[in-house]
């Protein structure tokens, strides 16, 4: 009887603790941290013949970290993600598995837009192209980066040509040629982001692309209104407010990053958020 009673007491004690314990664990603030990632040499050694899995684990880790920050706060990002660590982790991952597309895709999604490390991004893509010889996405990314950010059109044309050869798609061949010069930067960005958003399997990454796409569509709407104004009035609008008063913008454009659109002196559309969460949130009244 005694052992039975003892077991019963233990079970009751367990029940008494497990409910508040679980409650606490549920509401405990999640601090997803990138933490420390050992150097690729060390990782290579300890992961022995499981390098592919280790690489996948590193990539998943950085995606979950990103997801945990982006998802709950959506577009009011109070904690800026530790992009440097994310990049370091992904760079280690491709050292372990140079074929892993997720790493290139994910790195591309934040390196150029949020960290403005376009050169680092293109170096990583070049590394990947040595292995993923069949993949048109890598030269496509590199081409976009060269054209849009670096404005190096001849380099971009080379990348687009390669992407076109690998995929056989008309669009890239056009991009490699005269289309690249004719199309505006905004159009290019929208075409590129549409494709990226469709291809993203991870919800957090797709959402971040969707927001960016939304922002660029607003920019395009502003640019179109600005051009109509110029055609009708024969001069450039002095400010965004003038455009709004003129009646070409309904509804009033909204920056999904929480910033405020304005017109540069040269007529370019810009935003105080610079298309990043951190700045947008900071400038919010």
């Amino acid at each position: 009887m005694k052992p039975f009673a003892f077991t019963l007491i233990l079970i009751l004690a367990y029940l008494a603790v497990i409910i508040p314990f679980a409650d606490y664990q549920r509401t405990r603030p999640v601090v997803e941290k990138m933490g420390y990632v050992p150097t690729p040499q060390v990782l290579k050694f300890v992961s022995a013949d499981h390098k592919g899995v280790t690489a996948a684990a590193l990539i998943l880790k950085s995606m979950m970290y990103f997801g945990a920050i982006v998802e709950p706060q959506f577009n009011t990002l109070k904690v800026p993600p530790d992009y440097q660590s994310m990049y370091g982790t992904l760079a280690a991952a491709v050292k372990l598995d140079p074929y892993n597309m997720d790493a290139y895709y994910f790195a591309q999604s934040f390196l150029v837009w949020d960290v403005h490390e376009v050169k680092a991004a293109n170096a990583m893509l070049e590394y990947g192209m040595k292995y993923r010889k069949w993949d048109f996405m890598l030269p496509l990314f590199a081409g976009f980066n060269s054209a849009y950010f670096l404005k190096d059109y001849s380099k971009a044309a080379q990348y687009y040509k390669r992407a076109g050869e690998l995929s056989g798609a008309e669009l890239f061949v056009n991009l490699a040629g005269r289309y690249l010069w004719q199309s505006g930067r905004t159009e290019q960005a929208i075409a590129y982001l549409t494709m990226m958003e469709k291809g993203a399997g991870n919800e957090a990454v797709r959402r971040s692309f969707r927001i960016r796409l939304q922002a660029f569509r607003e920019v395009r709407r502003l640019e179109e209104a600005r051009d109509r104004f110029r055609a009708a009035e024969g001069r450039a609008p002095k400010s965004l407010e003038e455009l709004i008063r003129w009646g070409a913008l309904t509804p009033i454009p909204r920056d999904p990053y929480g910033g405020r659109f304005y017109l540069e002196p040269d007529g370019q559309v810009a935003t105080t958020s610079k298309f990043t969460h951190a700045l947008g949130a900071a400038r919010k009244p």
Binding site: D102, G199, N202
Partner: peptide, 8 residues
């Protein structure tokens, strides 16, 4: 959970 290479 992978973005672009579920089968891989």
């Amino acid at each position: 959970l992978s973005m672009r290479q579920v089968t891989e």
